[in-house]
Design a protein around this nucleic acid. Sequence first.
DNA 1: CCCAAAAGCCGACAAATGTCGGGTCGGAAG
DNA 2: CTTCCGACCCGACATTTGTCGGCTTTTGGG
Lengths: 232, 232
Amino acid sequence: MSSPPPSPDILLKRLKTFDFLQGLDGDSLNRLAQNAVWKVFASDAVVFWDGDVESNLYFLQYGSLKVLKTAPDGRTQVLRFIRAGEIFNEVGVLAKRPNPASAVALEESGLWLIPRAELEGIVLAHPEVAMQIIENMADKIIELVTLATDLSLKTVEARLIKILLEQAEGDLIERRRWSNQAELAARLGTVPDVLRRAMRELTKAGLIAIDRHQIWILNRPELEARATPPPE
Amino acid sequence: MSSPPPSPDILLKRLKTFDFLQGLDGDSLNRLAQNAVWKVFASDAVVFWDGDVESNLYFLQYGSLKVLKTAPDGRTQVLRFIRAGEIFNEVGVLAKRPNPASAVALEESGLWLIPRAELEGIVLAHPEVAMQIIENMADKIIELVTLATDLSLKTVEARLIKILLEQAEGDLIERRRWSNQAELAARLGTVPDVLRRAMRELTKAGLIAIDRHQIWILNRPELEARATPPPE
DNA sequence: CCCAAAAGCCGACAAATGTCGGGTCGGAAG
DNA sequence: CTTCCGACCCGACATTTGTCGGCTTTTGGG
């Protein structure tokens, strides 16, 4: 089922097209590519655990992951999704902190592990790269601020509407094999039953339509309005 | 009421003792100090607004701030507190993103504004400084991850206990003028009434004792136990 | 010292969220 | 083709959180 391990050349080609490393000389890139390790994770496999001290930077070549945290009682909160082409674990690799969350493959995923030793040298020698990393982290901070305030200040319904509007292409949302109710609920910070309730109410109100494989947005303006309660 | 404006020399002295800028040569520090702007904010004054594009790095010399986000319906979530000696707004200054939240003075506060132009040059020329900033941002990411998951997965009571245990010096917590119920509730992501309820229950259970100016922790082990529900 | 405004207190109620038991249905495995 | 399992559906109920009106206490300015 898994693809043949790609040679470092493929990574090298990818690295060259990568914002993150713009402006690096060929030598450095080459060295990075040569030292990177290729790994494939099956669906539902854990890439790293909350609390691990991980000293690699990850680059997701194909597939997709979720980043989540689990409470002792078993409930989980998904913090974000990672899609092909993204890097992650800046926190672990550069700041040497334990991972604040776990990462799990949503489908079979192939990724490159770039060891700290290589990366560190490059960052210190190439401040532009450091700057890129800083911008990257800034974006994550912004996303987390948004997540925290949404969890605190918005209802499940409002959060659901927001994610529907974000994910819609046109007025249609494909329900992938792994974006089932349980996953979506974890992303919203709630449980499947509550999610279903919210969906049913939106359906009853004629704002969306649902079947097993997709969701349609029937009335975008009203849906948006419903996500932002009376600003009085 | 406000102190006389300190000369840049004072900032210079401070900068020298600052992790953040360890390893910088005197010249660079001097230039930073000379170009910094001094400002004093009264209690409750807004240092910057959610959405502002702010191009200064801030250094809090004295006083304290809260960072928060307000919902259209008026409720607010406090994201973190800033105490004297901390820097903030890395996001705005280096990543050029709009502020994801507002900052408000909890008491009279004096701070230095370091303009982007100065800082940027230094970061590009001194990768160690960039590395410090990265670590700083990593810590904030970790805090935000914790905040988001706590909001999602823990009850108000558990969050209250956590904050009490964090803030206690020995088994005593001083209630500062600005850490009243409304502020504490905003930090916990709830409303004063709910907070009071949780406090009353902890009091009834004999775990804490409250008077107008302080809170005592009477039974730390049981308090801790109560914050982590059955791990079954 | 006195008074007004703010902060805190309280009970009762309302809304949102979480839990449970049991049912239905479609697709994958045999 | 049949069976089985997991995902989904559903109503009823429990718990947590938020809201309201009104009362008491504290505090700070005049």
